[in-house]
């Protein structure tokens, strides 16, 4: 193999080693500085804006790694993929991908997909409506609201500690 071919390979190997690190400490070091806590509050809201059901959970991720949700109902399945990207100015680009399979006796099974993005500040609350939000009182349908908040893990711990202290 010629030197010309070896050099880029060596460079690639070096770059990968730098990125991946060699041991647990490197991995933990990287994660402790880059972990993001994605807090999700899922709500089912009826047409008169009353929340009839809600569920909260938090997930740990890193920039560019999605948090994937699956919501199964009687006549539909929703896949939601929330991906936070930390920008160089420490703001956040939030990308939400929604896929909905809806089944009805009249129309069979239909598939809808959507991809939305929104630049936000860290900690700013964002709402995702995977089924839309145009309330039609004649149809009397409920809609799904996903409240998303992304914080660095350390800030999130401080945030929850302060929240507990305030109670």
């Amino acid at each position: 193999m010629s030197k010309r071919r070896i050099f880029p390979l060596l460079l690639l190997h070096f770059a990968f080693s730098l990125n991946a690190g060699d041991g647990l400490e490197d991995a933990l070091g990287y994660l402790s500085g880059n972990e993001l806590v994605v807090s999700l509050a899922t709500r089912i809201v009826e047409s008169e804006n009353q929340t009839v059901w809600h569920m909260e959970n938090t997930n740990l991720t890193v920039s560019g790694q999605s948090v994937n949700l699956k919501m199964s109902g009687e006549n539909l399945v929703i896949f939601a993929q929330i991906t936070p990207y930390i920008q160089t100015d420490q703001t956040l680009l939030l990308i939400a991908k929604g896929e909905v399979f809806v089944s009805s006796a009249e129309e069979g099974t239909k598939y809808y997909s959507t991809l939305k993005s929104l630049p936000v500040s860290l900690g700013e609350k964002v709402l995702f409506f995977p089924l839309g939000m145009a309330v039609d009182s004649n149809r009397n349908l409920y809609y799904i609201e996903l409240e998303i908040q992304v914080l660095p893990r350390k800030a999130s711990e401080k945030h929850s500690f302060e929240g507990e202290g305030a109670r």
């Binding site: 995702f128 149809r139 009397n140 409920y142």
Partner: peptide, 16 residues
Amino acid sequence: RSSPMGLQGEPQLLRA
């Protein structure tokens, strides 16, 4: 299971 749900316009992503 009892909640009637379906698409209601285009999905939205917005600041709370």
